[in-house]
Design a protein around this nucleic acid. Structure first.
Length: 269
DNA sequence: CCTCAGGACAACC
DNA sequence: GGTTGTCCTGAG
């Protein structure tokens, strides 16, 4: 058990923010996360957190996973004082962090996310993990299924049975491309310009500008990426008719995107 | 530039 | 029970 006091960190907000689809509030103030081939339970009371893991595991894995080395207060301080919408959005979602998720998992989950609801994205992801992932049991006796790797998702016929709709072919193609070496995840991870990475991602079957930006933001931790989905589109049109001041948020535009997205979906039940 | 088909299903009505 | 909308992309 690791006890920490952390500012600008809220597990409920992160769980609902729609960047990671395998984190749940199992009971009030209690969270379960399946990620990186592990299962972690965390309790939260205000700014205090209890991670059900060893100090060594926390330091090696979860500190970075939750992006706890980054000062989100400094991002919020950059919001324009007269930008009342973004001020309100950041206040509502100031506990959100851009997680350092596994690239492959993000690619699969955001291929599923296209033209889809968060609730159903979760169901689809869990179904994939249950059918193709590895069954594991945590020290506390919780049974969970890991995110299947590329080899496990190559079979187009079996994927068709997963109820993913037209998205199944994007995933089976990508899985085969990665498994057979035509696409290299390690190459994608190599530092290069955001534009260059974007071009490599949109070259993949089923990956357009929006999903590429999500992969860059959530899977490659390029927190300057700014995915524009239908929710953000509506917000930009109604609150920023003269254009959103992206130049103001160089280096953290994706964080602002998360505040706005979370604010929008929170106000819609 | 444009439009449209392309799953499935939750959330409405 | 029908309709709408969903963190959309690729083909034409």
């Amino acid at each position: 058990m690791v006890e920490k006091q952390i500012l600008y960190f809220d597990l409920g907000q992160i769980a609902r923010s729609g960047q990671c689809f395998r984190m749940y509030e199992t009971e009030p103030g209690r969270f379960g996360l399946t990620a990186l081939g592990r299962y972690l339970e965390i309790s939260q009371e205000g700014n205090r957190f209890w991670f059900d893991c060893t100090q060594e595991e926390f330091d090696r894995i979860w500190f970075h996973y939750f992006d706890l080395e980054t000062d989100y207060g400094s991002f919020i301080a950059r919001i324009g004082k007269r930008d009342r919408y973004l001020q309100a959005a950041a206040e509502a979602g100031k506990g959100i962090r851009i997680l350092n998720q596994d690239l492959w998992e993000v690619m699969v989950t955001f291929l599923i996310s296209q033209n889809n609801h968060i609730k159903r994205i979760r169901q689809c992801v869990e179904r994939l993990c249950f059918h193709f992932g590895e069954r594991k049991e945590s020290a506390g006796g919780h049974v969970y299924y890991t995110m299947p790797g590329p080899e496990a998702l190559m079979d187009a016929e079996r994927l068709k049975e997963m109820g993913l709709g037209y998205r199944d072919k994007y995933i089976s193609r990508l899985a085969a491309d990665v498994a057979e070496g035509r696409v290299s995840l390690e190459r994608l991870k190599k530092q290069k310009s955001r534009k260059q990475t974007h071009q490599e991602l949109t070259a993949l079957y089923g990956v357009g500008d929006k999903v590429a930006d999500c992969i860059q933001l959530f899977g490659l931790h390029q927190i300057d990426a700014f995915p524009v989905d239908t929710w953000i589109r509506k917000i930009l049109d109604s609150h920023y008719p003269k254009g959103f001041p992206l130049y103001r948020y160089r280096g953290c535009a994706g964080v602002m995107q998360q505040y706005m997205f979370y604010y929008a979906i929170s106000n819609m039940g």
